[in-house]
Design a binder for these strands. Structure first.
Length: 730
DNA sequence: GGGAAGCCTTTTTTT
DNA sequence: AAGGCTTCCC
């Protein structure tokens, strides 16, 4: 029997998932097991073989990148357009629902989206208006509280407020929500919650979409939070419908977003809520060597409550995992740069190398070492384009143009550039708005007209109001690009940044020009949600929901630096996991709170399984954190790797490193001197009869009185007099 | 309104 | 260590 073309080149498990009859399915897809491939082929299969219209399929992801990749691959496979299919992020699809049913969702047609920065500012203002003690209550924590409640599907009235803290937060949440509703503003969590409430409370809308979406496929299900789960459940008839089918794909071992509300249990819950779920495990790995997989398997085996899964490969063993114990973070960085140099000299590409770390602060020292070694690199996860100050200024003008009630935008631009509307005037306007329960814009207008605001202040406010109204009239017929260009110029924003001096200001001017460019190139019909919106509204939604992936020239052959979190879903031939130390990874916070260690271990598992050919793990005995020198021991995760998979790299000879002139921060003569004075080099491994093995960290004095500091693996750091310590070099 | 000085915080990130 | 934020002062 000839194989169906869609099933060719799939393994048995993948084939079973792709060609399964219509039913609920749980695909437990291990790292590198061809998860996206299965999803894409399944969608194609539903259309080709089950003869479903793309109209009746919804596919949900977490990131725009994943959604774009999925859509692209389905189109490639089908050779046809998938426009009718809803493929997008949870937030993108929720937004689409809200736009289509804004009246039912009790939103103004021109509602705008708040990003987390806007949200935090808004909360801060609310807290000020509530006269809360700023020392005691932080906007950040209030935001955290509000979002956590929204992610749980909770409104202020759902919160008891027995406890004083909760009561205060509840009050903030309440006032914040009132302010958002009045201003026509929706934060990210609100998109999901509103869409959920819309479906829950409106049977006509709900049943329409239930009839429409026969198949819903959800990627990375281990990262869903309560509201996302509830959302999928509502849309699919809650497992009770016989005409709706849900496929979830995920890996409980790669759940690394528990700290922002993701519930790994949603995977278990799915098998309970939905009938006859077929579970398919994809365990064959097409990415890594046997060595890397068995090490990763062995680390993750230390977690309990797993659904159970063991990765295997038909590939070879490959090289052992290198483990480098650095003396400090500079030494670690220098070692890594050296290894990358020899990898490059052997004719390998730098793009194939990734440096993964637990926290962003670690990148600086790595960067310095790469810079010094003249190795080009690229850092992921910086400030995104639409999040930049000047771009947000411009977007706020545009938002206010579209929706005068947008208090967040009003606050941002009212005096940017300065136009004589100071803090005092603003306070009066805020007060007036609060008393009359109206938006800031209306309050400003009324107060100026009523002469509550006097002379200069009133004139300035009226001039601003006139500026916005004129901008709206004048640019109504313009193309999007010209409209935005005019707003940036006539508002004075461009002139303000042009007047500033320095490299930073130049970049800001460039970014404003780039924003106009982006408008010119913006294809609103690229995204079906936007078809019914004005071009400007479509662009604003795009800016809020797709924060603009940095597309630095991808052609440059550069090493990639990123956090372990952002590495999820990616793969690289050579991977360095840096700073694998107790207190850093697993992080101190995760050690302090029970139950968080397992997630750190999963993060370690994610990091290790990024490596295709070669994995290098490094840690530093001593590291400067927040300006303080800290002593660390190797991470427990290292001890969880089978010894036969590990190769301990000996400390690079210090004297060799020191002979390189002009090493800047990386020139360390200290070790040299230490050797001359004490007979031991910094970073050297030694053994003590009582304390066991350790690493030499520091020294003082010379000759018979000299003392050295040793960080012992088991008992921590100690100062010993060299003459009496009877140390063995090892 | 803007600059200097002092205080505080500090994981992980998408939308 | 360093950046962000507030406050203070002209």
């Amino acid at each position: 029997m000839t194989q169906h073309p869609l099933l060719e080149q799939l393994n048995d498990k993948q084939r079973a998932a792709v060609s399964a009859p219509e039913r609920h399915m749980l695909v437990l897809a291990g790292a590198g097991s061809g998860k996206t491939r299965v999803l894409v082929h399944r969608i194609a299969w539903l259309m080709q073989e089950v003869q479903l219209s793309p109209y009746s399929i919804m596919a949900v992801t977490f990131t725009n990148k994943a959604a774009a990749e999925m859509r692209g691959r389905v189109e490639e496979l089908m050779g046809s357009s998938t426009r009718a299919m809803w493929i997008g992020t949870f937030h993108g699809l929720a937004h689409r629902l809200l736009r289509a049913h804004y009246l039912d969702a009790k939103l103004p047609q021109n509602f705008q989206i708040l990003d987390s920065d806007d949200q935090q500012r808004m909360i801060k203002r609310i807290m000020r208006s509530l006269n809360l003690d700023e020392k005691r209550w932080s906007p950040k924590q209030a935001m955290w509280f509000i979002n956590a409640k929204k992610d749980e599907g909770l409104r202020p009235h759902h919160i008891d407020g027995y406890d004083f803290n909760e009561r205060t937060y509840k009050e903030i949440y309440d006032a914040y929500q009132v302010a958002c509703d009045r201003a026509g503003l929706v934060d990210f969590a609100e998109l999901l919650l509103r869409a959920h409430e819309l479906l829950r409370d409106n049977s006509i809308v709900r049943e329409h979409y239930q009839r429409r979406f026969r198949h819903i496929l959800v990627d990375e299900f281990q990262d869903t939070n309560a509201i996302q789960y509830a959302w999928v459940k509502l849309l699919s008839g809650g497992g009770e419908s016989t005409d709706n089918f849900v496929t979830i794909v995920g890996d409980d071992d790669q759940s690394i977003y528990g700290w922002r509300g993701a519930k790994i249990e949603n995977i278990h819950q799915f098998t309970r809520d939905f009938p006859n779920v077929e579970t398919i495990r994809l365990e064959q790995n097409y990415r890594s060597t046997n060595t890397i997989l068995s090490a990763a398997n062995s680390v993750i085996a230390n977690n309990s409550d797993r659904l159970g899964k063991e990765l295997w490969t038909e590939g070879g063993d490959g090289e052992p995992i290198d483990l480098y114990a650095a003396y400090n973070e500079m030494d670690e960085a220098r070692y890594i740069a050296g290894q990358i140099e020899s990898w490059h000299e052997q004719g390998n590409a730098l793009t194939d190398v990734a440096l993964l770390y637990r926290s962003n602060a670690q990148s600086r020292v790595l960067e310095e070492a790469l810079l010094h070694a003249r190795i080009p690199y690229r850092i992921y996860g910086g400030l995104r384009f639409f999040d930049r100050q000047e771009v947000k200024d411009a977007l706020s003008y545009l938002r206010l143009l579209v929706n005068r009630n947008d208090d967040a935008a009003f606050e941002r631009v009212i005096n940017t550039p300065t136009r004589g509307i100071g803090a005092r005037t603003l306070d009066i306007v805020r007060d007036g708005a609060r008393q009359r329960s109206i938006p800031l814009w209306d309050a400003a207008k009324q107060l100026a007209n009523e002469k509550v605001l006097t002379g200069r202040a009133a004139n300035a406010v009226l001039a601003f109001i006139d500026l916005m109204d004129t901008l709206e009239d004048d640019t109504a017929d313009f193309s999007l690009g010209r409209q935005v260009d005019t707003v940036i110029k006539n508002s004075g924003l461009m002139a303000m940044y042009q007047a500033e001096k320095g490299e930073k200001a130049e970049t800001r001017v460039e970014n404003l020009k780039e924003l106009v460019n982006a408008c010119d190139n913006f294809d609103q019909f690229d995204n079906a949600v936007n078809e019914e919106l004005t071009p400007l509204n479509a662009f604003l939604a795009h800016a809020a929901l797709e924060s603009g992936e940095e597309q630095a020239d991808e052609h440059q052959d550069a090493v990639q630096l990123m956090t372990l979190h952002s590495a999820k879903g990616l793969e690289f031939p050579l991977v360095f996991m840096c700073g694998v130390e107790e207190g850093l990874f697993p992080s101190q916070q995760s050690l302090d709170e029970s139950g968080r260690l397992a997630e750190e271990r999963r993060l370690c598992y994610v990091g290790m399984t990024r490596a295709m050919q070669k994995l290098v793990i490094t840690y530093a005995e001593q590291r400067r954190i927040y300006g303080k020198e800290m002593l660390h021991r190797a991470s427990r995760f290292i001890a969880e790797i089978p010894p036969e998979n590990l190769h301990h790299v000996r400390m690079v000879s210090r004297s060799q490193a020191d002979t390189t002139p002009a090493m800047g921060r990386f020139h360390s003569g200290a070790s040299h001197e230490a050797f001359a004075e004490t007979g031991y080099q910094l970073g050297q491994r030694v053994r003590h009869t009582k304390f066991g093995e350790g690493t030499v960290l520091n020294y003082e004095g010379s000759g018979a009185q000299s003392r050295i500091q040793i960080n012992f693996d088991d008992v921590g750091s100690k100062w010993l007099v060299v003459a009496y310590a009877r140390l063995d070099r090892c």
